[in-house]
Simulated assay, not measured.
Amino acid sequence: MNRIEERLKELKTENKKAFITYMTAGLPDMEGTKALIKAQEEAGTDIIELGIPFSDPVADGPVIQDASYKSICKGTNLRKVFQMMEEIRNDGVKMPVIFMMYYNTILHYGIEAFAAKCKEAGVDGLIIPDLPFEEQEDLQTALDKEDAAILIQLVSPVSKDRIAKILEHARGFVYCVSSMGVTGQAGTFHKEIISYLTNVKKVSKIPVMMGFGIRTPKDIEPMKDIIDGAIVGSHFIRLLEENNYDIKAAKEYCRSFKRDL
């Protein structure tokens, strides 16, 4: 059981929902990223998705695309993010951290070397939007060999009959994409969102998280009895940018969302 699974087990025992944020690695810079991670841990954020900047983030909308571009321009790369991860773990950060990234970055690094480095640096999970379930064997084998980060599975409203197959051996949590298209489409959830989430919940042996388009706890009010937690990405990125990556603003948002959740 890794840090993600341990945290979600604690929340289930406490009858609480999980609050997960997404932020782009390297913004406002590496030291700023470290400070924001530590601040969110203090504020009660349960899990952080750390976006690894990529030139063609196909699952992401304009906000995260822009953040990714800015981070790349600052020189952020996977090697530097791994180094930053080792530093925060050495500083005592215990909260689960998931890399949200694209598969070409892993291929370029080398699958086996990547899996080993995840273990060494304290990366707990991976979300890879452009890696279909049927193409995951090579990476999964490498991760299993190293007893490294767990691969978080994504499902969407069009997954339908494939959901049970995708989740059969899934670990951590299932990431339910709430709408068709890219991230950041505030509140525009799929028209059959309730029945879709209910179907996922029926077949899932692990917690069900909902992401894409969430800004406040009120956005997920109709789904609160189905899902086990919420993921906030584009809105959190926008909030950080509007407040010049102010630590206090980040902590207040996270603390408030977690409380109201």
Score class of each variant (00 low, 15 high):
His169Cys: 06
Leu131Trp: 02
Val177Arg: 00
Val174Tyr: 03
Ala148His: 12
His108Ser: 15
Ile127Cys: 13
Ala164Glu: 12
Arg89Pro: 03
Val123Ala: 03
Val174Thr: 09
Ile127Glu: 07
Asp161Tyr: 06
Lys70Asn: 14
Thr105His: 08
Val155Trp: 00
Leu126Arg: 01
Asp144Ile: 12
Lys160Ala: 14
Gln136Ala: 13
Pro129Ser: 08
Ile127Arg: 01
Asn90Thr: 14
Leu151Ser: 08
Asp91Thr: 15
Pro57Tyr: 03
Ser68Ile: 02
Gly184Leu: 01
Ile72His: 06
Ser71Tyr: 08
Met85Cys: 08
Ile163Val: 14
Gly92Gln: 07
Leu167Ile: 08
Ala148Trp: 03
Glu112Lys: 12
Val97Gln: 04
Tyr69Trp: 13
Phe114Lys: 05
Ser156Met: 10
Ser68Phe: 03
Asn90Met: 14
Thr105Asn: 11
Ile106Ala: 00
Ala142Cys: 09
Cys118Gly: 07
Ala113Trp: 14
Ile128Glu: 00
Tyr109Phe: 14
Leu151Arg: 02
Met85Ser: 12
Gly172Val: 07
Phe173Met: 11
Met85Asp: 00
Glu137Met: 15
Asp66Tyr: 10
Phe133Tyr: 13
Met180His: 14
Gly184Glu: 06
Ile98Val: 12
Lys165Glu: 13
Leu126Ala: 07
Met101Pro: 02
Val158Ile: 11
Met100Ile: 11
Leu154Asp: 04
Leu131Thr: 02
Glu86Ala: 11
Gly172Asp: 09
Ala149Asn: 01
Leu167Thr: 03
Val155Cys: 10
Ile128Val: 10
Lys74Cys: 06
Phe114Ser: 05
Gln65Asn: 06
Phe114Asp: 05
Ile152Lys: 00
Leu131Tyr: 00
Arg79His: 15
Thr141Ala: 14
Pro132Arg: 10
Ser178Ile: 07
Glu86Val: 14
Glu137Gly: 14
Ala113Thr: 14
Leu154Thr: 10
Val123Thr: 11
Tyr102Ile: 07
Glu112Leu: 12
Gln83Cys: 13
Pro62Glu: 11
Phe173Gly: 09
Leu143His: 04
Arg79Gln: 11
Arg171Gly: 07
Leu151Cys: 08
Ala148Met: 15
Val58Thr: 14
Cys73Ser: 15
Ser178Val: 03
Glu134Cys: 13
Leu126Gly: 05
Leu139His: 02
